[in-house]
Design a protein around this nucleic acid. Structure first.
Lengths: 147, 147
DNA sequence: AGTATACTATACCGGAATAGTATTGATTTG
DNA sequence: CAAATCAATACTATTCCGGTATAGTATACT
């Protein structure tokens, strides 16, 4: 019951771009280096984010990736869905009939899990990378003043 | 990001026992049949639940499994931990240092995920099988009256 | 034009985890 | 002692995960 490694990498990549001035273009190699993402793997991840409309890509010399929309409009949930598809903490809550008991309607366990899942998704949707990036900058500034 | 199939089976098994009069002993085979759990697999699951102190086992003729404590004292979270270990929706929130960025302290993504995880776990802990079983009985009675 | 840069798209691969089966053995009851 | 039933563990087939490799395409600079 864990998010994938790739999703974590994707979080890093998006946060990285969200921390730069809007519209900034970064190469995959640069991101791999700074965010500790395997150099080849980063391309696969960016590709998925790009297909999901979260980042846009620019080819050729001076190319790279940039956010496809304001960081405020990208939520944790958006990135998760881009990398893993819709979140379903329990099989039955994802695809119907994956449950061989076919009890989706009557089962109180499923009902409870469904409620908790909704609450989790709500929390993930209400956190955007604009806020997250600002949080980090704030902290960096604070720690700068402390020194 | 999904609970295991085994965990679902475990939910069924515990709910099954919670729906019977307290102290009832059921054989693995019976549970497998009624809850649509592969007959051999059910033993493995009961074994894990037994090691976790959720059910107790009775060998020999007339033996089987029963709940080791009142259904009210068994939460969804207890069963999840018995089957999969402590819940961690994100690597870094489980074992420290699994994150090659070592950013557990500063990373706002981790902070947010941590908060959401706590909320989820809280919800799972506050749901017990006594209540779940009663919910089901209620519903069965309601549907009985309707007919 | 030609070349270097950088992404696109997809195929491939090894290792771990899942889901489930099988086997041998230990207890308990009758 | 025999039958029932769980204990413990080994085994297996398949899928998923994390990551690599490669061949190709678009862009920019000279």
């Amino acid at each position: 019951m864990q998010l994938n490694q790739s999703t974590d990498y994707a979080f890093r990549a998006v946060l990285h771009m969200a921390s730069l001035p809007a519209g900034c273009v970064v190469t995959g190699a640069a991101m791999a280096g700074q965010q500790m993402i395997p150099p080849r793997f980063v391309l696969k991840i960016m590709h998925m984010l790009s297909k999901a409309g979260i980042v846009s890509s620019h080819r050729g010399t001076g190319g790279g990736f940039s956010l496809a929309k304001p960081a405020e409009e990208i939520s944790l949930y958006d990135v998760i869905v881009a990398m893993e598809g819709e979140l379903a903490i329990h099989r039955c809550l994802g695809e119907r009939n994956s449950c061989n008991k076919h009890c989706t309607e009557e089962c109180p366990v499923h009902a409870t899990l469904g409620r908790l899942q909704d609450q989790l998704i709500e929390g993930l949707k209400s956190t955007n990378f604009g806020a997250l990036a600002r949080e980090r900058v704030d902290r960096e500034q604070r720690s700068h003043y402390r020194e």
